[in-house]
């Protein structure tokens, strides 16, 4: 089975975010592979391994990482390779700076199709920096395949069908999807492995194809940023209230507060 995992290089979410004019500052900022993408990479590796040890289908097929981002995004690709993915594709182009979700999906779909036939595309539910959560659906539509979002468990995978548990607001649905397909996975889907030293060394030798927009037969017009930020303003700040150190009377104080708010 050929599996593609989408990975994104984002500003380190543990550092305070900064604005660059009207968009999130990305350049010259310490970056990491989106922590949410580790679950996607792990899911891809697990499916490949499961098929390799199962009967019938052999372990043939590869896990390919596909990313769009600045040259620094190579770091995110290498990180996924060190976990065990086979190869990478990185689309970098100055024109793509500030791309919206529609353009990103268009570019990723072109890169995935150029990479060759695929059975499954895996992405995180939403990125940690932009969190639109719409990319997997948009990407699937461009690829002309079904998609299942917020997958919290991969129940079974065989050559032609994937069975998954999809998170819903009040429980989950079991969904069977014919391949090829796109899925997005939650942080509950697995426990991502750590990259071993051996994995990190091996990753340096794994192939990563670097593509520009023209390699994908796309023009600047195809990916033009259409969404324009017109204004930034400060939200009204909540007024801070009373902060007290507990001296044994805090519980009574809270109960009084609840009473005053008429909820007890």
């Amino acid at each position: 089975m050929n599996i593609v995992v989408c990975v994104k290089h984002i500003p380190d979410p543990n550092l305070p975010a900064e604005m660059d004019g009207k968009t999130l500052k990305r350049e010259g900022v310490q970056g990491v592979m989106d922590p949410g993408d580790e679950f996607g990479v792990e899911a891809g590796l697990q499916i490949k391994e499961r098929l390799a040890t199962g009967d019938g289908e052999s372990g043939e097929g590869e896990v390919t990482l596909v990313s769009m981002g600045p040259a620094a995004a190579m770091e995110a690709v290498r990180r996924g390779l060190s976990m065990g993915a086979d190869k990478g594709v990185l689309v970098s182009d100055d024109v793509l700076k500030g791309s919206d979700a529609l353009a990103t999906a268009k570019v990723l779909s072109a890169a995935i199709q150029k990479n060759g036939a695929f059975d499954l595309v895996i992405a995180g539910v939403e990125s940690t920096d932009g969190y639109t959560g719409t990319l997997p659906g948009t990407l699937a539509e461009f690829l002309g395949v079904p998609h299942v979002s917020t997958v919290k468990e991969i129940v079974s995978a065989d050559g032609g069908t994937l069975k998954v548990n999809r998170q819903t607001a009040d429980g989950y649905h079991v969904v069977e999807v014919g391949l090829p397909a796109v899925i997005s996975v939650t942080a509950g889907v697995n426990e991502p492995r750590y990259a071993s030293f051996k994995g990190i060394m091996a990753a340096k030798k794994k192939p990563v194809e670097q593509l520009s927009l023209s390699d994908l037969d796309l023009s600047g017009d195809d990916v033009a940023v259409k969404q324009e930020v017109t204004e930034l303003s400060k939200a009204e700040e909540r007024e801070g209230g009373e902060i007290i150190e507990d001296d044994g009377s805090a519980a009574a104080k809270i109960a009084d507060f609840l009473k005053e708010a008429k909820v007890i």
Binding site: A101, G133, E141
Partner: peptide
Amino acid sequence: AGRLSAKLGSTLMS
């Protein structure tokens, strides 16, 4: 909404 964005070529604001 995500799929529709691709079908229409309209950017989706989330």
